[in-house]
Every structure is written in structure tokens, then in C-alpha cells.
Design a protein around this nucleic acid. Structure first.
Length: 279
DNA sequence: ACTATGTCCTGCGAGC
DNA sequence: TGCTCGCAGGACATAG
């Protein structure tokens, strides 16, 4: 039930896979210098602030928080040493390359960090929905889906009049679920995307949180098998992804009951569901 | 406090 | 074959 892909939507499992791949390849390295492109949109912090935080910093580790990649940095040349975090959000089309300096610079490259090992970390993003920033105390806006306690989840979601799909996509509530895994989770939980959160029972919420965790975990396992094993000559990651059961399958037959999968628009996003399995 | 909607941006694929 | 056009969606702004 896996597909190999080079194109993907960076939701929680994909960002987790990318962060692990980056951690494996650049942890311990030192950023010597930084180049930032002219396009202002991808820079959430001022360019000179980003450059000042990154340059001469050692990469202590790379991890994922929600859909964000967090580089934990330590800058030794100050007294005392300064702790920084380089935050990368991939948006829709953002990619992180780890490559040699002579690798041709891809179109839409917005940032390059040159490392003392000789490698470069590059941020490439055609659509420029991605964002770069630096901070000292990064905090996710919502709860981590994989660690979420049911009572907290319930407290955040119950009673809202918005469609459950919209609530799942709201990063201030739950950090990391995007359009694809929202649809897949709702399918597994048997809930239609347009159902108002306030009309969902406690038992259904319980099933939903379990489904969210299961879908994300399975996708991480699928992606995890590809960490650092499917990097092409330009340092681009490839992935194994879970086969989607409903997402992008409008008009196809439900894998459970053979009913045709429907597509509706919720919160301006295409949403796919089985009218038989989901109520 | 919440909710709904519009906007950004480029690549790609459907359709003619 | 070559062109146009509309869709894809994460996060934020804005309005109600």
C-alpha cells in the first residue's frame, strides 16, 4: 500500500521524514555563511537577523514541530554562547536540498546555508508559500497530534460550529494535519468532512483522534523507510507515501464498500469521502 | 471568541 | 502539437 513519489504535500509525516533526513546529514555541522534571495515573501524574519543567527552556528539537531522544521543552533563566538532556532515551513511546494556547492542552483532557490563540511543546505520553493525565520523559543500554535491527550483534544474541538474538516485543518488547535491526512482520518473515523464539530459525539471524537494518530503514524513509518535512501544527485528527497483511500479519488470506488467516492469543497479545500462509510 | 472567505504564487494537466 | 485556463492548498488578513 505504498507509492514512491518525489512530489508530495508537506504535512506532518512528510515534514517528520524530511527533518530526520536533515538531522542525519547535517547534525554537528557548522553554518559558515548564508545567502538569502531577493524575494521577500519567504523571509518571515528580517534577512540580516536570519543571517546573523545562522552564521557561525553549530547545528545541534533538526526536528519537527507541527509542520515546521526546527534547526537547533548554538552560536559559540558570543560569550556566553547563544542558542537559536532556524524555523523552516515548507508551505505547499518548499523543498530542502543538501548538496555540494557545485550542484546547479535550482530555479526558485531562496536561501543557501554553506556548511563547514563543504555541503550546502538549500531552500527551494516555487510557489513561495514557505517561510523562513529565526527565534529563540519556538512554540507550536496547537497540540501535537501524536502526543494529544483525548480530554484536551475534546476540549479544543467539541462545541465548535465549524465543519470538522475545518477544525482539523486549524493549526491553532492541532498542529500538523493538512488536507490529505484530514480526509484520510475522517474516512477511517467514519465522519463526513462537513459534519459540524458540535454534532460529533464523544465516542466519535475518540475514534477520530485514534484515526488521526494511526494515519499519521503509518505515514511516518512509510516515509521513514525512505530517509536518506532516496536522495537523488541534486540532494532531493524522494518518499514512500501511504496509498490514499479517499483523497484524490473522486468517482473511484471506496476500498471498503465499493460506493463511489464523492468530492465536496469545505473551507475552500477539496474534500473526499465515502457517502456510505462516512455519516 | 469564533467563523467564513479571499488572497497569495507557480506548475501542471485537462481540454480544445 | 501548442495554447489557454483553472485548479492545487497552508497560513494569514479581513470582515462579519
Amino acid at each position: 500500500m505504498l507509492t514512491y513519489t518525489k512530489r508530495f504535500m508537506p504535512e506532518l509525516p512528510e515534514v517528520e521524514t524530511i527533518a530526520r533526513g536533515l538531522a542525519k546529514r547535517v547534525t554537528g555541522d557548522v553554518i559558515e555563511s548564508v545567502w538569502l534571495g531577493q524575494k521577500p515573501e519567504p523571509l518571515k524574519s528580517p534577512a540580516r537577523e536570519i543571517a546573523a543567527a545562522l552564521e557561525h552556528s553549530r547545528i545541534l539537531g533538526v526536528r519537527r514541530v507541527g509542520k515546521h522544521i526546527v534547526f537547533d543552533l548554538r552560536q559559540n563566538h558570543g560569550k556566553p554562547p547563544q542558542a537559536w532556532q532556524w524555523i523552516v515551513h515548507l508551505g505547499m511546494t518548499g523543498r530542502m536540498q543538501v548538496c555540494e556547492p557545485q550542484t546547479e542552483i535550482a530555479k526558485h532557490t531562496h536561501a543557501i546555508a554553506r556548511l563547514s563540511s563543504g555541503k550546502e543546505v538549500r531552500f527551494v520553493d516555487p510557489r513561495r508559500f514557505g517561510r523562513l525565520s529565526v527565534t529563540r523559543a519556538f512554540q507550536a500554535s496547537g497540540i501535537e497530534p501524536l502526543d494529544a491527550k483525548f480530554e484536551r483534544f475534546l476540549e479544543l474541538f467539541r462545541g465548535r460550529r465549524t465543519p470538522i474538516k475545518s477544525a482539523l485543518l486549524n493549526q491553532k488547535l492541532l498542529s500538523g494535519v493538512g488536507n490529505i491526512y484530514a480526509d484520510e482520518s475522517l474516512f477511517r473515523a467514519g465522519i463526513r468532512p462537513r459534519r459540524r464539530a458540535s454534532a460529533i459525539t464523544r465516542a466519535q471524537f475518540s475514534k477520530l483522534l485514534a484515526a488521526v494518530k494511526q494515519v499519521l503514524q503509518e505515514a511516518i513509518v512509510a516515509g521513514g523507510s525512505s530517509v536518506s535512501d532516496y536522495v537523488d544527485a541534486d540532494g532531493e528527497e524522494g518518499f514512500f507515501q501511504l496509498q490514499h483511500r479517499v483523497y484524490g479519488r473522486e468517482g473511484e470506488l471506496c476500498p471498503v464498500c465499493d460506493t463511489r467516492i464523492k468530492r465536496v469543497v469545505v473551507a475552500g479545500r477539496s474534500s473526499h469521502y465515502c457517502p456510505q462509510c462516512q455519516k
